[in-house]
Design a protein around this nucleic acid. Structure first.
Lengths: 189, 189
DNA sequence: CCGCTCATGTAACAGGTTACATGATTTA
DNA sequence: TAAATCATGTAACCTGTTACATGAGCGG
């Protein structure tokens, strides 16, 4: 169960509500994990019941009240134990790869369209992560920040996110080029 | 349900038994999807029941008999439909990233050990995929093969696998360096 | 007045993981 | 003789996804 640990890790940077967490774990932002709002609300409830996080009610005017959560000592101990345990290997599991695997036997036009869209999404994420990195490091250089800054955890995971999306984009672009060229040379003349 | 499509895509390259499929979808080999043997046997049973694949019994001496499966016309149509449908976005979901996200608050020694192991695993996969690519393209150059070869699907997905693992390895190495240096400069003198 | 943001959930279902189970043959 | 390979599954459980549900305020 890694979602709970992802939540604990995210809450290390400060108190967050379920809603804010949901934003952070959303498609557009998540650089180290992804989860849906429903999952997060459920997980927060469980974590609180087990005493790994604690929430405090914040009364708001002109907004619904919210609950801000922080990690307890027990929660930190849980994270510690999780980190000490062996990590399970990570895999790519991507619809697009399955489709490309079958590329010769299926209609490539639809596939190229999807690759194009994916490349655009990847580029958007690269930009987003880029500005996030800049915000995290402030006016320091990357090396400077990584040597002496605090909160390098989010920075390091974000670096991974950028690299992943760049590779993603580049692969899409190249695959598109390959498929397009073959489509032309195989087309009836 | 993308596993079924991954199985269909894998079977496009020729008849395979459940056991052989399991090998192909195993940790060490899978370049476009991962699945456990149990999943595959169950999926093959379902696919056969639905007529998307067909199997034939192969009697063996000195080995248990096996069933070799191939994709039917209905199966190909299903793949076609799957490819035409929009792909859902892919995410990284990796224990290691969660751990690095929390790096400043937990014991880094165990973390560095895990990053080291991951880097080694990644390197092993790079080597494996590299030789797989070479086998696929034969004595042609990559460009030559991608322009005129057949079975470029597996080649393209394998390229993605290589890039992913390289990035994986490089990130691990860099993260280790950062964590180690900080450990020294923060250690009591 | 329509749609977005803030804010929180429940319920049903689909999918994936872990554990268990069997048994013959080849290789070290 | 111990371990790995070939070959196939079942059952229980955990996780994640999809659909549904509510309700107030703000901006265009």
């Amino acid at each position: 169960m890694a979602l709970r640990h992802a939540v604990l890790a995210a809450l290390l940077d400060g108190e967050l509500s379920g809603y804010q967490l949901a934003k952070a774990f959303d498609v557009g932002v998540a650089n180290f994990w992804y989860a849906q709002p429903q999952q997060l609300y459920a997980e927060l409830t469980r974590l609180e019941k087990e005493g790994l996080v604690a929430g405090r009610e914040v009364v708001q005017e002109s907004r619904p009240n919210k609950r801000l959560f922080h990690v307890t000592d027990a929660g930190l101990a849980e994270l510690e134990a999780f980190t000490a345990a062996a990590a399970k290997p990570a895999f790519i599991r991507d619809d697009l790869l399955v489709k490309v695997q079958a590329a010769e036997r299926v209609d490539t036009a639809a596939l190229v369209a999807q690759l194009t869209e994916r490349a655009q999404v990847a580029q958007a994420k690269i930009d987003l992560f880029g500005s996030l990195l800049h915000r995290l490091r402030g006016d320091r250089t990357e090396d400077e920040f990584l040597r002496h800054g605090d909160r390098i955890g989010p920075y390091l995971t974000c670096l991974r996110g950028v690299a992943f999306e760049q590779e993603n984009r580049d692969w899409c672009v190249r695959t598109i080029a390959v498929l397009e060229e073959r489509r032309q040379s195989h087309a009836p003349h």
